[in-house]
Design a protein around this nucleic acid. Sequence first.
DNA 1: AACCTCCACAACCGCCTCCGG
DNA 2: TCCGGAGGCGGTTGTGGAGGT
Length: 271
Amino acid sequence: MVQQEIRKGPWTEQEDIKLVSFVGLFGDRRWDFIAKVSGLNRTGKSCRLRWVNYLHPGLKRGKMTPLEERLVLELHSKWGNRWSRIARKLPGRTDNEIKNYWRTHMRKIAQEKKRAAISSPTSSSCHSSLSSENHTVDSYPTKKTGEESFYDTGGPNMTSKTETKIGEDQVGDQGYSMDDIWKDIALSESLMHPVYDGHSEVGCNFSCPPMPSPSWEYSSDSLWVMDEEESKEIKSRQTSNRKVGLALGYRGSVITKSSQVNQFGILCHAF
DNA sequence: AACCTCCACAACCGCCTCCGG
DNA sequence: TCCGGAGGCGGTTGTGGAGGT
């Protein structure tokens, strides 16, 4: 058999249209199947990612609201890097989006805090990661072996992967890995107030009220409104008739860049 | 105007988990 | 019970655009 070459890289409008229509037909579960029958020379994974992060009708775009920002912070302190889980509490936001947001914004904040900490060197809590003497503020500490960093875990058993990767030479862009970000944030938060001690999901008292689900009105089986338990429950309810025509629920409310708006206009017409 | 830096975001990779045979 | 495949998840990278110098 001649294997068609798997396409990679940016998706075209035509591919999007195809994907949406096939998801409409077969639901958003059987990604490998969809990838095959659609004729998109993409992997199932790629199709799923495109759908979840970009084509899903309930996606909210644009800047994070202050409420969302706060929620991300608090949920991250509660759950660590469980982006998909955090995303479920932020209707319309994807794990990818939150991850990206966290990475850029928190890094920025951490840098600012770090600068502030440097300018007041009497602070005893800033010794650990600020000791790279002959570096500028923008060069970042590398991970010390055996040093504990609860921020890169989000839980007791998420350390291994990160550590083995970053412990080598992989330090991310500009030499600033996720690991370093967590450390910086840990540092900056410790300067501000005591930090919730990390791992357990119980006994964490937040001042933040439960997510009020602002202006969110997507269907009840939305990806984002479910917590794990809910999702399990729904999964158990899911039978073959589920989701057919989910994509037909397209609404015009998806905020996109101008070209993307056009794209969705086209997509709507595809049905 | 050209160049640089930063940011936002899309997408890929690799590992993990789950589920069906 | 075991195994393989599909899907899910977290980490990372690439790229384009905006803003600053």
